[in-house]
Structure formats: C-alpha cells, structure tokens
C-alpha cells in the first residue's frame, strides 16, 4: 500500500474510533436520562476529552494530507468529507455531554422525566447516528440517504415536546428548572439528529460526488 493510502486509512480508522465513542456517548446519555443513572452520565463526561483530542488529531492529519498530497477525485472528496464529519462528531459528543450533565440534575426528578417523552426522541435519534456512521464505514450512499428522511420526524417530535413543556410551565411556573432541563435535552437530541444528517450528506458527497445539502442535488464540479 502506498504511503498516501496508509495515511488515508489512518484518517478513516481514527474517524471510526471517534464515531464509536460518539455513538456510545449518545446512547449512554439517553440511557442515563431514562434510568436516572448518574454513573452512566459520568462515563459520558469522562469519555468526552478523548473525542475532543481525536478531533484535533484528525484535523491535523487531514490538513497535512491536503497540503502534502494534493489529493483529487474520490480522495479529495473523502478528505473534505472527513474534515466535516470530524467536526460534526465533535459537536455530537458535546451535545451528548450536555445531555449527561442535565440527566445528573434530572436524576432527582424522575417524575418530571417520565411525563415528557424524551426517551422516544432518543429512540429516533440513535438509529440516525448509527446509520450515518455505518453509511460512512460501508461507503453506502443509499443508507446515507435514508438518514436524511428521518430528520423531519425528529423535528416534529421535538416540537411536540416543546409544546408539552410550555404547557407544563404554564401550569406550574414555580418548578421551572427540571422542565427547562428537559427542553434543553430535547434541543440537544434534535441537534444530534441534525449532525447525523450532516454526516449522511457528507457521505453522499463522498461516494456519489453529489451535494444534497439543503435539498439540492448538484454533482461535484
């Protein structure tokens, strides 16, 4: 294998490691919330520095490849997609850490959590993360495109949760804190879904050379 291909593979493997950590962080943060499990939430927070570290390493590796190898065609599309995927993964890790922090606060308010269906939102978002990463690993643009169609359901669910929280706050404004925590969690989950969508769009570009962001379908040129 040529040196360049070894470096490309290294970038791919590091993104896979980072993707694994992020997928796990999203899953554990949702579990921590549902089960009011502070221990799980602390694991998410403990793993976040590694995700941040990988983001810096991956950016450095990708920038070096652009500068030194002057990649073209599918190599260029892979590296530009990798830079964006790297950034989206780091943001997802951040959001998972935010959810973990809120779940620690909400652990003492199990009744509130059970009244709003955040778990269902988590169940919508988690497969999006898994499929987006799977599509990247397998270079499967059809799977990536299927992630794009899930985003609307997440947005609808999040809007319903927001309406429910507003309703609860109107009924009992003196106990606002846990409701605001839940609103924040639902917002974080929705953002994780958005980042998974971004990754799926990057995979479509990487594999097919077509830019599908914002409803477009423009071949790379």
């Amino acid at each position: 294998m040529r040196h360049f291909e070894e470096r490309l593979n290294e970038l791919r493997l590091r993104l896979l490691e980072m993707g694994g950590l992020v997928e796990s962080a999203v899953h554990l943060s949702v579990q921590a919330l549902i089960e009011a499990n502070v221990e799980l939430a602390r694991r998410v927070l403990a793993d976040e520095p590694r995700i941040n570290e990988l983001e810096i390493q991956n950016d450095d590796l990708a920038t070096g490849l652009l500068a030194l190898e002057q990649p073209v065609a599918s190599d260029l599309r892979f590296i530009t997609a990798a830079i964006k995927i790297n950034n989206n993964l780091e943001r997802m890790g951040d959001k998972a850490a935010n959810i973990a922090e809120r779940s620690i606060a909400l652990a003492s308010e199990p009744a509130v959590t059970s009244l709003v269906d955040v778990a269902r939102l988590g169940r919508l978002v988690e497969p999006m993360v898994h499929q987006a990463l799977d599509a990247f690993v397998r270079r499967d643009s059809a799977l990536a495109r299927s992630v794009l169609s899930s985003d609307d359901a997440v947005d609808d669910m999040r809007n319903r949760i927001s309406a429910e929280v507003v309703h609860r706050l109107e009924m009992d404004a003196r106990n606002a804190r846990p409701w605001l925590d839940l609103l924040f969690v639902s917002r974080s989950l929705e953002r994780i879904g958005d980042h998974a969508t971004n990754i799926a769009e990057d995979v479509v570009f990487m594999v097919d050379g077509v830019d599908v962001r914002h409803g477009h379908a423009v071949p790379a040129r």
């Binding site: 065609a73 599918s74 599309r77 050379g209 071949p219 790379a220 040129r221």
Partner: peptide, 13 residues
C-alpha cells in the same frame, strides 16, 4: 473541475 473532483470514468480516477 469535474475531471479533478468527480471523474466519470474509473480509468481517469
């Protein structure tokens, strides 16, 4: 730009 970002033929790639 198309040739260097998204060539249509494997031989070119």
């Amino acid at each position: 730009k198309t040739i260097f970002t998204n060539p249509s033929r494997k031989e070119t790639e």
